[in-house]
């Protein structure tokens, strides 16, 4: 995967953080919607918004489904958009495996709600220019997705 020039490490033009509650399927997706509205307000192109929205939604739903709680932060840099999701939860024992299409540990309940196709992480990888996942079993997971703007 091609690395980003600056990889969004400097001071962002805009940073916005949100809390995500694990297990809350009612509120699940609202943070992504708010981020999407923010990106629309600052006039990112429809194609970029679409990709960012998919990344946010998948990452948010993973916190809702698997973790206790988490935070989602979006940073806008001159040349890239960075989405960070950090959660307290069970962690992912084998990240490589979790990234495979179709791999899922979703429960029947989650499946009945239309989740758990095992396509979340693969979808993020497809839509982001860079995806990094670090996870400690028993502690939690942190995900960082970067989308190039130019």
């Amino acid at each position: 995967m091609p690395a980003c020039d600056a990889e969004g490490t400097g001071k962002p033009l805009l940073r916005q953080g949100y809390a995500v509650q694990g297990g809350d399927f009612l509120a699940g997706g609202t943070v992504s919607t708010r981020i999407k509205d923010l990106l629309k307000e600052i006039g990112l192109s429809p194609a970029l918004i679409r990709r960012a929205a998919i990344c946010c939604y998948e990452a948010e739903m993973n916190v809702v489904m698997y973790a206790r709680q988490g935070t989602m932060t979006v940073e806008i840099h001159p040349r890239e958009l960075v989405i960070r999701v950090e959660d307290e939860g069970p962690g992912i024992p084998d990240v490589e495996l979790a990234m495979q299409e179709g791999y899922s540990t979703a429960t029947d309940f989650m499946r009945s709600r239309g989740f758990g196709a095992g396509m979340g992480l693969p979808n993020i990888r497809r839509n982001a220019d860079l995806l990094e996942i670090e996870s400690v079993v028993g502690r939690g997971t942190s995900l960082r997705a970067v989308i190039r703007l130019v």
Binding site: E41, G43, I76, L149
Partner: peptide, 11 residues
């Protein structure tokens, strides 16, 4: 605006 910094300033 088409300029990102200006758009963020407007926000």
């Amino acid at each position: 605006e088409t300029d990102l910094a200006e758009a963020i300033a407007r926000r």
